[in-house]
């Protein structure tokens, strides 16, 4: 516990310093957006629910996020939340990815268009 929390907290500090104006970062490419939507619905969905109504993790609906500052949400995604099961997504998401995901969540998240076809990955 101690080790895991400390690690996440340190990571959080580093991310905070690095992030700065993350929300202003560029927009992901269309194919990446599709991947991100699939990932949020399916993999984030294992804790937050496929419909994002919550589960082990809190709901990520526009209503639930309405009063939360965007920058803080981006930091939560990148650095995780110490003491909770929310892991840091740095290394999996870029800051631009995270900022785009938060923006979509706050608007009402798109439906999953499916994964990028296997053929396109090869």
């Amino acid at each position: 516990m101690v080790v895991r929390s400390l690690g996440v907290m340190l990571a959080g500090v580093v991310a905070f310093v690095m992030l700065g104006g993350a929300a202003q970062a560029g927009t992901p490419a269309p194919e990446r957006m599709r991947e991100l939507v699939h990932m949020v619905r399916q993999d984030c969905g294992s804790c937050h629910g496929l419909t994002l109504q919550g589960g082990l993790g809190p709901a990520l609906t526009p209503q639930a996020l309405r009063d939360k500052p965007v920058e803080a949400l981006v930091i939560t995604v990148m650095a995780g939340r110490p003491g909770t099961p929310m892991p840091p997504f740095r290394g999996i998401l870029s800051e631009a990815d995270a900022a785009w995901v938060i923006e979509q969540l706050m608007r009402g998240f798109p439906e999953d268009g499916g994964t990028v076809p296997a053929a396109a990955l090869r």
């Binding site: 080790v3 690690g7 099961p85 892991p87």
Partner: peptide, 10 residues
């Protein structure tokens, strides 16, 4: 005492 990895799925 080793650093635990981020857990993306319980």
């Amino acid at each position: 005492g080793e650093q635990a990895l981020p857990v993306y799925k319980m």
